Amino acid sequence: MGRNKAQEEIDIMNYEHFMNRAYKLNRRIKVPHKMELGNLINAEYGINLKLIGSHRKQLNQLKKRIRTGIQIMLPVVNNKELYNLYTQTTYAKNSNELILIINKGLILSEKLK
């Protein structure tokens, strides 16, 4: 059985909001899109694997994007907890762990709203 679709959509939108904060600071990164996290969630449930690739591929791409976003925000936010999220992202094993990181990152980067 899958996750609650309403909560999944909220988590996906939170990812996009978080990454948009980094994008506003550095427009040289790829524009964030909510389907980046959506693809990882789908891969975890074996949905559309032929189109989106494996869970590991999606996870590694998303972790790299989130770490890049955090690196961009760090000089402006200047928060040790945000740096800790960078480290936690490296060791995240699935979308649920990344969602926790994103939600905490949204709080820590609130001033970039």
Rank of each mutant, 00 (worst) to 15 (best):
N4W: 07
N4G: 08
E9S: 12
E9G: 01
E9R: 13
I10T: 11
M13T: 14
Y15S: 05
H17T: 11
H17K: 11
F18W: 08
F18G: 02
M19P: 00
M19V: 01
R21Y: 02
R21E: 04
R21N: 02
Y23R: 10
Y23T: 03
Y23P: 01
K24Y: 12
R27F: 06
P32V: 05
H33T: 13
M35D: 11
E36M: 15
L37C: 05
L37M: 14
G38L: 02
N39W: 04
N39K: 11
E44G: 08
Y45E: 13
G46K: 10
I47N: 09
I47E: 07
L49N: 08
L49T: 14
I52M: 10
G53W: 08
G53P: 09
S54D: 15
S54N: 13
S54Q: 11
H55I: 12
L59C: 10
Q61N: 15
L62Q: 08
L62K: 06
K63V: 08
K64T: 14
K64E: 14
R65G: 03
I66N: 07
R67D: 01
G69V: 04
I72D: 00
M73N: 01
M73H: 02
L74C: 05
V77S: 04
V77W: 02
V77I: 13
N78L: 01
N79M: 05
K80W: 04
N84D: 12
N84Q: 10
L85C: 06
L85I: 09
Y86L: 09
T89A: 05
T90P: 01
Y91R: 15
Y91E: 14
A92N: 11
K93F: 12
N94Y: 08
S95D: 07
L98R: 02
L98D: 02
I99F: 07
I99Y: 05
I101F: 01
I102D: 09
G105I: 06
L106W: 00
I107E: 10
L108M: 10
S109W: 01
E110G: 03
